[in-house]
Design a binder for these strands. Structure first.
Lengths: 101, 101
DNA sequence: ATTTTTTATCGCAAATGTACGATAGATATT
DNA sequence: AATATCTATCGTACATTTGCGATAAAAAAT
């Protein structure tokens, strides 16, 4: 049986969409997501170099994107790289596409 | 020549997306947008009946959606109906679709 | 082993967001 | 004209968000 998003009921759907949208609702975070889309993965420091805000603030934004499930900190042997969380990204994509039919 | 969103430069694009996402970043507001998508237009009171929050709070949420340009208060002779702002909705749609390619 | 680099977290301040009841203003009904 | 209905706004309280510098903790380089 094929798994689809149709199983998510209206309310969960609404909340999931709101959560993703909220996490995307800051231009710094959109910029981060766009960068990760292009560059696959990168370190916090790479983003700090690009963005006009402090390291601690970048770190906070990353945390929020991570909490929303849109990105993930991939734990390589000794390093942490941030990547798009492909699974949730797919869900967000579907929710938005479906929402904006 | 076909007009496309490619003309919007990166920065505007990012900010527009963030603005739409932020406005959509609350489950009450997603619920309102969904309802307007289904019902075309409706009055504030109709939404107050559906939603589990006070009239003044609904009104505030409508104001935010209006400020973001996602809906518009259509001024019929004596009444105000809220509708999707089709023009901006189309833009938001395109931005999101393009973002989540 | 020490130092440097990298990243997360703490503590704080300021700004913004959420929600409510009360009230005002405007439209519709009687 | 008076009353009822509908909607926006005000004032308030509380919570969350944003941003920073400082610091801590962990990893990498020397």
């Amino acid at each position: 049986m094929k798994r689809s998003l149709a199983h998510i009921d209206y309310k969960e759907d609404t909340e999931a969409l709101a959560k993703f949208a909220k996490a995307s609702g800051h231009s710094t975070r959109i910029a981060i997501l766009k960068h990760l889309e292009n560059q696959s993965c990168c370190f916090t420091g790479d983003l700090v170099d690009i963005l006009p805000i402090s390291q601690s603030t970048v770190s906070q934004h990353l945390k929020e994107l991570k909490n929303a499930g849109l990105i993930q900190g991939e734990l390589k042997p000794q390093k942490i790289k941030y990547c798009i969380n492909q699974e949730n990204w797919k869900i967000a994509k579907l929710l938005f596409q479906q929402f904006f039919d």
